[in-house]
Simulated scan of single mutants.
Amino acid sequence: MSDLDVSGTRSPFERENLGRALADPSGYDLLIFYRIDRLPRSMLDLAKIMAGPS
């Protein structure tokens, strides 16, 4: 899965592929990110990701 050419101003939850994976992580055992600083747009986004789906 990749979200190439997606603006860095978009929340991770608004990205097409990553948003789907974050909304329903049951289909994945593990998500690997090449660089963790590319995952969240802000510390708030990182906190939401770490908290899991609501």
Rank of each mutant, 00 (worst) to 15 (best):
1 M>Q: 08
2 S>P: 06
3 D>Q: 05
3 D>I: 00
3 D>L: 07
3 D>K: 01
3 D>W: 00
4 L>H: 09
4 L>E: 08
4 L>D: 11
5 D>V: 09
5 D>A: 14
5 D>R: 07
5 D>L: 07
6 V>S: 02
7 S>L: 11
7 S>N: 12
7 S>E: 09
8 G>P: 05
8 G>V: 06
8 G>L: 11
8 G>Y: 02
8 G>R: 10
9 T>A: 14
9 T>R: 11
10 R>C: 10
11 S>A: 12
11 S>M: 05
13 F>P: 00
14 E>N: 07
14 E>V: 09
14 E>H: 10
15 R>C: 02
15 R>F: 04
16 E>S: 13
17 N>V: 13
18 L>V: 11
18 L>N: 04
18 L>H: 00
18 L>G: 02
18 L>R: 01
19 G>N: 03
19 G>Q: 02
19 G>H: 03
20 R>Y: 08
20 R>H: 12
20 R>D: 15
21 A>Y: 06
21 A>L: 13
21 A>V: 08
22 L>V: 07
23 A>F: 06
23 A>I: 03
24 D>Y: 04
24 D>N: 15
25 P>Q: 03
25 P>H: 06
25 P>W: 00
26 S>H: 04
26 S>R: 06
26 S>F: 08
26 S>Y: 04
26 S>Q: 12
27 G>A: 13
27 G>F: 07
27 G>D: 11
29 D>A: 13
30 L>A: 06
30 L>R: 11
30 L>I: 08
31 L>W: 08
31 L>A: 12
31 L>P: 00
32 I>A: 15
32 I>L: 15
32 I>M: 15
33 F>P: 02
33 F>V: 14
35 R>V: 12
35 R>T: 13
36 I>V: 15
36 I>D: 08
36 I>M: 12
37 D>G: 10
37 D>P: 10
38 R>H: 06
38 R>S: 05
38 R>G: 03
39 L>A: 05
40 P>Y: 01
41 R>E: 03
41 R>A: 09
42 S>A: 12
42 S>T: 14
43 M>L: 14
43 M>I: 10
43 M>F: 07
43 M>Y: 07
45 D>F: 02
45 D>G: 05
46 L>D: 01
46 L>P: 01
47 A>Q: 14
47 A>H: 08
47 A>Y: 05
47 A>K: 08
48 K>C: 10
48 K>D: 09
48 K>Y: 04
48 K>R: 15
48 K>T: 14
49 I>T: 04
49 I>W: 04
49 I>G: 03
49 I>F: 03
50 M>K: 11
51 A>S: 15
51 A>I: 03
51 A>H: 10
51 A>R: 15
51 A>F: 05
52 G>I: 11
52 G>K: 07
53 P>A: 15
54 S>V: 14
